[in-house]
Nucleic acid binder design. Structure first.
Length: 592
RNA sequence: GGCGAUAUGGUGUAACUGGUUAACACGUCGCCCUCUCAAGGCGAAGAGUUCGGGUUCGAGCCCCGAUAUCGCUACCA
């Protein structure tokens, strides 16, 4: 059994149950985990009994071993009927304060642009988690940031998730008993809850302007002290507050984090994690525009929607104490937290569009098959049991098949206890190999259908007709003119892309700016053209230079159908990817 | 800088409660097949498990200490 969790095993079992109740009690590393193993079940034989005097750090399995190759005594002695089989109910094994609520999980994407692979990744994990336990998978739209809101984004998220094959039981489009599922439609709810916090003294109003806060931040940075809100507004007198309110001064509401002590929570994959309160900021809960921040909205909604397990990316670990504090401030039952490792670029940084295609639209439009994408995502972070050597030999199966599995197989075998915590690099090379495997297994008929539904769909072909019809003398010439709309690797030679009167460095810099401009653009002819011309004017690039450069990058050639229309047809995700690939290629060290 | 998390070949993962030459897949290289390229078959190189101590007959798994990487450090999520 791989030991993935360390904890101090020096507390008698009886001490365990009380720890989670009080706050802010800095618990030792593992009261609760300990209790997980000792309550409601007999202690597994293979785990040493706690000894009152021994305080040795040992490793224990995070989760009962029922699905492992070697069934634990637990699962042997206590066969449990399960909805879909599998990970014998982590909930069952958990501490007794969890009143076996039905499993409900959620993903909460933010509609700020193209649907993200990370959303599909976390979505997949949540989906599998829920379905393995006969629970519900909920989709909630976190659109509380109106400055980053993109109106087309929500629909794209729906479409992308459906494309990969994930379906949700409740959501903005399908409804459900705990709606609305769009946070912008829940502002009244948040306001009510803020009042509760204000009333019970766990939050306070803060009247500083954004500028004042920024100035404070700069000062703190200059003084090399941690940039943090100084809590000044905590000390405002009631008269002062009333006066400010009377004059209609805008304010935010902040969480009143205890000045002393610490908060400990259990991450189901890592064990207990403790944060000193001196390191937890008085987080803004309600912005001056009346919208909540993620922290408030997420806690309120998770509670109201009956979420039992919060499965989200690792980047949230640092703010989890704030969420814990909020649950406690409201007096609510806590969900369990599972922080998944972050998908990474090749350089190990958090996956980002500049270094990796992250738009699900890109994968869909480029002809990746949804099951392959899902399969690949399932490979990230482990989770699927690997065949042992003996199994490979005895069953004589092709070893690469271990890496190939379907969603139903994941439901059957995926084991959250197996997840490895190192951030996995999202490797396009292996994804392509996997996709190729899927493609080859298709029947010719299915392959044909796949082609006709994507790269050669009627809709795609029809969108191309206006670009080529006037320019052809025979139908057979279409490939001469529009090959770049059907190709993956397009890379113009330097004599094609480099303008006569420009240096390569300034040109590449300009491409970078084109890219930035286009990333922000709505994907239609006028917007694209407008953005490009605006940029060209600002930077002193003629329309001709500007467009010819981009034409070279997008089409690989100096002649092509109308550029902007071609880009519209080709799609935002793929066009931008082509530009990024161009830049990446040019930055590669050249031979000679 | 502060706080937190993480650490097995280039990449993704294995390695049962510490037990023989650290396994599988992708990638790379070579050979075979073949009109070419893929696919397929066969084979090879590539890590001694971030580093340093310790415990032990024995450590990737346990302990201590470093280091590195990533994340957070917003009226973004």
């Amino acid at each position: 059994m791989p030991a993935r969790l360390r904890f101090w095993r020096c507390f008698p079992a009886s001490a365990a149950s009380s720890s989670s109740a009080s706050w802010p009690l800095a618990t030792g590393r593992s009261f609760r985990l300990h209790s997980r193993l000792t309550t409601r079940r007999s202690i597994p034989r293979n785990i040493p009994q706690p000894h009152p005097h021994s305080c040795r750090q040992i490793r224990v399995p995070r989760v009962p071993q029922g699905t492992r190759a070697h069934p634990s005594p637990l699962s042997q002695h206590h066969p449990q009927p399960q909805p879909v089989a599998l990970v014998p109910s982590i909930a069952d094994m958990s501490e007794s304060n969890t009143t076996s609520r039905p499993t409900r999980v959620r993903i909460a994407p933010s509609p700020t642009g193209d649907p993200h692979v990370g959303t599909a990744y976390i979505g997949l994990l949540n989906y599998v988690f829920a379905k393995q336990r006969g629970g519900q998978f909920i989709l909630r739209i976190e659109d509380t940031d109106r400055t980053r809101f993109v109106s087309t984004s929500e629909q794209m998220i729906f479409d992308a998730l459906k494309w990969v094959g994930l379906t949700w039981d409740e959501g903005p489009d399908v409804g459900g008993p705990f709606g609305p599922y769009r946070q912008s439609e829940r502002t009244a709810i948040y306001r009510e809850h803020v009042e509760i916090l204000l009333a019970n003294g766990t939050a306070y109003r803060s009247f500083e302007t954004a500028e004042e806060l920024e100035a404070m931040r700069q000062q703190q940075i200059a003084a090399k002290t941690p940039p943090r809100y100084n809590g000044a507004a905590r000390h405002l007198s009631q008269e002062q507050i009333d006066a400010y309110l009377a004059e209609g001064r805008p304010y935010t509401v902040r969480l009143k984090v205890p000045l002393e002590g610490s908060t400990t929570f259990r991450d189901e994959l890592r064990g207990d994690i403790t944060f000193e309160h001196t390191n937890v900021d008085d987080q803004v809960l309600m912005k001056s525009d009346g919208f909540p921040t993620y922290h408030l909205a997420n806690v309120v909604d998770d509670h109201l929607m009956g979420i039992t397990d919060v499965i989200r990316a690792e980047e949230w670990i640092s703010s989890t104490p704030k969420h814990i504090l909020l649950y406690k401030a409201f007096g609510w039952e806590m969900p369990k937290f599972w922080h998944m490792p972050l998908l990474r670029n090749a350089d190990k940084s958090k996956i980002s569009k500049r270094k990796n295609p992250v738009s699900l639209n890109f994968y869909r439009d480029s002809g990746y098959l949804a099951p392959a994408v899902l399969n690949y995502l399932g490979l990230m972070g482990g989770g699927m049991p690997q065949l042992t050597e003996q199994e490979i030999v005895s069953r004589g199966i092709n070893t690469k098949e271990t890496d190939i599995f379907t969603l139903p197989e994941m439901l059957e075998k995926y084991d959250f206890a197996r997840i490895s915590l190192g951030g996995p690099v999202f490797d396009l090379v292996k994804l392509k190999w996997l996709n190729g495997e899927y493609l080859r297994k298709l029947s010719p008929e299915a392959f044909f259908s796949a082609m006709r539904e994507t790269i050669f769909s009627d809709a795609y072909l029809q969108s191309i007709i206006p670009l080529v019809q006037a320019r052809l003398e025979t139908l057979g010439q279409i490939g001469d003119l529009a090959d770049f709309l059907f190709r993956d690797n397009v890379m113009p030679p330097e004599n094609v892309w480099l303008p006569k009167k420009r240096e390569s460095a300034e040109t590449l810099a300009f491409v970078g700016e084109q890219l930035t401009a286009l990333e922000a653009a709505t994907w239609d002819k006028d917007s694209i053209e407008g953005e490009l011309k605006k940029l060209g004017e600002a930077k002193g690039w003629s329309v001709k230079e500007n467009f010819m450069l981009l034409r070279a990058i997008v089409s690989g050639s100096a002649t092509s159908p109308p550029l902007v229309e071609s880009m519209v047809v080709f799609g935002k995700a793929r066009t931008l990817d082509r530009m990024r690939r161009f830049l990446a290629f040019q930055k590669l060290p050249k031979r000679n």
